[in-house]
């Protein structure tokens, strides 16, 4: 068990190293540099600025410096926001994105399991059809459309009751998070619903369910202690990629709802060609995703004892 975890972690670190290298290379392929965009400046000043950010050194040296700093956990200083370090930006804005993401994953997972179960239990009836129709809609409509419609409906409701029942945008309190998290989680929820439904339907025909029925167990008991527990496994496996999908979707939702999260910062940094911020955020996000997937795999090993992760077959 421990050796498996260590092995996965080492593999994860190697992946992060490759992500860092790819980011570095991509950034140095980008035409233009963050300094030339600014006001005209004398060569002396330019040289000074280049020296400060280490741009005067050869690319190989820059790469080594970048890697060593990164290993120390130092992503450098922003080009456009004077004296603000990338670590600072991450510390200030990642918690916002993470809170939103966690809430979205929770909503998606709970909704997915609930609606998937409803659909599977009422297979072929109108409840099932309605849920499956909504699922198709959920995977086919982009999240910014849900975001816009959600805002519109909320505005109308707020107008109708003449008070702010839920705020339409911005960030701060829990009520600010609800709509964005729901919008962010909808696509994933739709996917999980479908997954949960097909996984439940597969299990219905298993021998142990028939045995349970033959024993005369009540339906409720069969569902909760046999069907649900087994069917939920694929949903848990998917949570790793789901976290990735949700962080990605966060870009759009953060921009529509004016949430000061990391995604919005990344887009802004790209527009301003802020080298250090782009590299820092990409590596940070990459590392986050890689370790999230590892974490989910390890948790999966605990949840399903049939899978012996010690052999590296999770």
């Amino acid at each position: 068990m421990l050796s498996y975890v260590i092995k996965r972690l080492v593999a994860g670190l190697v992946t992060v190293f490759f992500i860092a290298t790819a980011t570095f290379l991509a950034m140095h392929l980008v035409p233009g540099d963050p300094i030339s965009g600014a006001k005209a400046m004398s060569p002396e000043i330019r040289a000074n600025i280049e020296a400060r950010y280490g741009l005067d050194k050869p690319v190989a040296v820059q790469y080594v410096v970048f890697l060593t700093n990164m290993m120390k956990g130092d992503f450098g200083i922003s080009f456009t926001q004077q004296n603000r370090s990338v670590n600072d930006i991450i510390a200030g804005h990642f918690p916002i994105s993470a809170t939103l993401g966690i809430l979205a994953v929770l909503i998606a997972a709970m909704g997915g399991v609930l609606y998937g179960s409803i659909a599977a239990l009422t297979r072929g009836k109108w409840e099932d059809r309605t849920v499956m129709f909504l699922v198709i809609l959920g995977v086919s409509v982009p999240s910014f459309v849900f975001a816009a419609l959600g805002q519109y409906v909320l505005t109308e409701i707020n107008k109708r009751f003449d008070t702010e029942i839920l705020p339409v945008g911005g960030w701060g309190t829990f009520s600010h998070m609800l709509l964005p998290a729901l919008v962010l989680g909808l696509g994933t929820m739709a996917f999980l619903t479908r997954l949960m439904r097909s996984s439940l339907l597969e299990i219905v025909n298993q021998d142990y369910i028939r045995t349970a029925k033959a024993k005369g167990l009540p339906t409720r008991r069969i569902f909760f202690s046999h069907q649900l527990r087994n069917a939920i496994l694929p949903v848990i496996t998917f949570l790793g990629p789901a976290i990735a999908a949700i962080t990605t979707g966060g870009f759009v939702v953060e921009s529509v709802f004016a949430i000061p999260g990391l995604g919005r910062y990344f887009v802004q940094a790209v527009n301003q060609l802020d080298y250090t911020v782009i590299m820092g955020l990409t590596v940070f996000y990459g590392a986050f995703l890689v370790f999230m997937v590892i974490l989910v795999d390890i948790i999966y090993g605990f949840v399903d004892p049939r899978i012996s992760i010690a052999k590296g077959k999770a």
Binding site: M27, T248, F266, L273, V290
Partner: peptide
């Protein structure tokens, strides 16, 4: 394949897009 799969998709989409240059 595993490595490419581990890249954060949208971030690298944006990164590559500007790296391949839209003048």
């Amino acid at each position: 394949t595993d490595f490419v799969l581990a890249l954060p998709f949208l971030l690298f989409m944006i990164l590559f897009k500007i790296a391949f240059g839209a003048g």
